[in-house]
């Protein structure tokens, strides 16, 4: 019977070296909030548990001019307690505050939440709306993957076996203040989302100058709604337009039915949350 092994390197370089050697035999553990349940459910077979939670160099929140960089092992609680995130990138703060529960937030990491590639990952829609990129590294190699290209399916990502996410970056532009994240779950904490929406918006004279919107739990992957965005750009916002935009949303989402909700309800709710996000942001900016 094969066994799990464990290692907790202290530097990123060590991790990359081990990944190069072990490839798919290694399973990166950051917060542990997904990996441990997977081990219990035997979803993960015995592997090398590569614990990156102790790698200090990957835990940071930095803003340099308009460039944001967040380290992969930054916890959800770190996001909440970061003054700069709260003040200048509030959409991420909103998502973090609705993430699981206070205890899980103390361990779960932003990198882990994305790498898990759940369609319901709460940090994915805001980061998609921020047009974030992932810094991905393997031994001796760095590359960047746009988050919109990262998710390939439920629990499938563009990561190679020897790669890890080391950081997330995005730019402050005229859109991302303050941004809006809305989560609909079946209870107020420890809820896996039924639908989430994240939106950033710039309005000029009641015209949509620019918009980015993403949703969770409405497709096999966290979804950027490009068609709805395009549809709204340069148009004057009014109730009729919002109704039309909702129809674009309905076309773009492709949810499943599960124990939490039916596909029809998810589809319907995606329209409602989309509208609410628009309303909230236009009220704030006007």
């Amino acid at each position: 019977m094969s066994q799990f092994r464990y290692i907790s390197p202290k530097t990123k370089e060590e991790v990359l070296k081990i990944l190069e050697e072990e490839k798919s035999e290694a399973c990166i553990v950051a917060g542990g909030s997904n990996v441990l349940p997977y081990i219990r459910d035997k979803i993960i077979p015995p592997k090398l548990l590569l614990d990156i939670s102790g790698i200090e160099e990957l835990n940071y929140i930095k803003k340099n001019g308009s460039n944001w960089r967040i380290g992969a092992t930054t916890t959800i609680s770190d996001l909440i307690s970061s003054k700069i995130i709260r003040e200048e990138c509030n959409i991420l703060c909103q998502a973090a505050e609705q993430f699981a529960d206070p205890l899980v937030r103390n361990k779960a990491t932003i990198g882990g939440n994305l790498a898990d590639a759940s369609p319901a990952a709460d940090t994915a829609p805001p980061l998609l709306a921020l047009d974030a990129g992932l810094e991905v590294e393997s031994k001796g190699k760095k590359r960047e993957i746009f988050l919109k290209d990262f998710f390939l399916g439920p629990r499938k990502t563009a990561l190679q076996d020897d790669e890890m996410i080391t950081g997330i970056n995005f730019k402050s532009d005229s859109l991302n203040k303050p941004g809006c994240f809305i989560k609909l779950g079946l209870r107020q904490a420890m809820a896996i989302s039924v639908v989430t929406v994240a939106m950033v918006l710039e309005i000029e004279e009641n015209r949509v100058k620019d918009i980015r919107v993403a949703m969770g739990s409405v497709a096999p992957i966290p979804l950027r709604l490009f068609n709805a965005e395009e549809f709204l750009k340069n148009k004057h916002l009014n109730d009729d337009l919002i109704e039309e935009a909702k129809n674009k949303v309905y076309e773009e989402v492709n949810p499943i039915s599960d124990i939490r909700a039916s596909a029809e309800y998810r589809c319907y709710i995606s329209g409602i949350l989309f509208k609410r996000a628009l309303e909230k942001l236009t009220n704030q900016t006007s």
Binding site: Y6, S8, G32, S33, L36, P37, S77, V104, N106
Partner: peptide
């Protein structure tokens, strides 16, 4: 920090 020990590896408490 309060954490859930069931989803924490023992090694993470090292």
């Amino acid at each position: 920090k309060a954490i859930k020990s069931c989803i924490t590896l023992a090694g993470q408490a090292n």
